[in-house]
Design a binder for these strands. Structure first.
Lengths: 176, 176
DNA sequence: TCCTGTATGTTTAGATCTAAACGTAGACCC
DNA sequence: GGGTCTACGTTTAGATCTAAACATACAGGA
């Protein structure tokens, strides 16, 4: 059987983690734990679910992220390496490797950009488009089910709070 | 300069992603995007911040996760490989590798468990405890700053919604 | 006692990422 | 024209993870 952590959400409540730190390192700042621990756990659970779902569908998350980003860009579905790095939130080096793998598998082509001679334009092949069309509906339908217990209002509230948190992280992270 | 994605939060609003999918694959289910996209971005921003903060402090996230989990367990700060896998939310194979690296660096010891001959007990060395004591305060202080823009009420609301989402993911993920 | 199944760890192959070092290509300025 | 700076990509080293194959150690039943 597949080896896997027994409890994908973590068996230790976040509050107990704060308590334990206060016992082990008295006076330590613990108020971020109530947010960051559940956030981290949910993100991991979602990432694991996505990986397994995509494995069933015959793609891997990195390649689908690449193909999806190109497809979402709209016709003619072409972006440079730099644009892909920005939108996929990974380094240019990671994009270079993703594109190399996808090109090897016949899913994208790499051509000199018409705009600038140093830029590289990446575009899905027909097979690349087929992969997107075959998998994205199934993936999004599955993820719809994962958030199904939350009402529309709760989802909106959660999305808004997460965007506020993103702003907070951006504020505090950049200067330091 | 260090190479890095230009905008750690993603420049494309989540709503635009849903719009783009509806244009490219008409009728696709997009209502999960408003939750999962910002969640994913914040989690990545926090992970990146943590990695850089710990790099400054001279540890790596995987090793500190291991040492922290042992320390939080309380005296005598000993857990088996299996317990570590459950609490760290990674596979037993990953724990085996983390422990091997930490043991090589003199941060933990691996001894036969007194309970069962097939179990392995992992415990921090003095140096391992020093690393925890030296870094965890700084890390938690930094993460306190990252969530500082949210009020206490917003943090509680966010934590609660995330735990509800975790339950939803667990419900939908296990049967399938 | 022996057999079988389950639990616990380790190892390995392959994918992936970051960080940093490179190598060019344009741009700007004198 | 030549020098310098910045932008764009690629490559490489090293860390990390999952999944799957192994290797034991127990436990329970016949």
């Amino acid at each position: 059987m597949t080896e896997y952590p027994l409890d994908g959400t973590g068996s230790v409540p976040a509050a107990d983690i704060a308590t334990a730190w206060d016992r082990e390192l008295p006076g330590v700042a613990t108020s971020s734990i109530g947010v960051i621990t559940p956030l981290w756990r949910v993100a991991k659970a979602l990432a694991d679910e996505r990986r397994r779902t995509l494995h069933r569908l015959g793609v891997d998350p990195a390649t689908l992220d690449l193909l999806s980003t190109l497809r979402r860009a709209g016709e003619p579905w072409t972006l440079t390496t730099r644009e892909l790095a920005e939108r996929c939130l990974v380094t240019a080096g990671a994009i270079s490797q993703r594109v190399a793998r996808a090109e090897r598998d016949g899913l994208v082509t790499r051509t000199p950009s018409p705009v600038s001679r140093r830029a590289v334009a990446v575009t899905p092949t027909d097979r690349g488009h087929e992969v997107v069309e075959r998998t994205v509906r199934g993936l999004l339908a599955h993820e719809e089910a994962l958030v199904a217990d939350l009402t529309a209002g709760e989802r909106r509230a959660l999305g808004d709070l997460l965007e506020r948190l993103a702003g907070s992280v951006r504020n505090a992270g950049e200067p330091g």
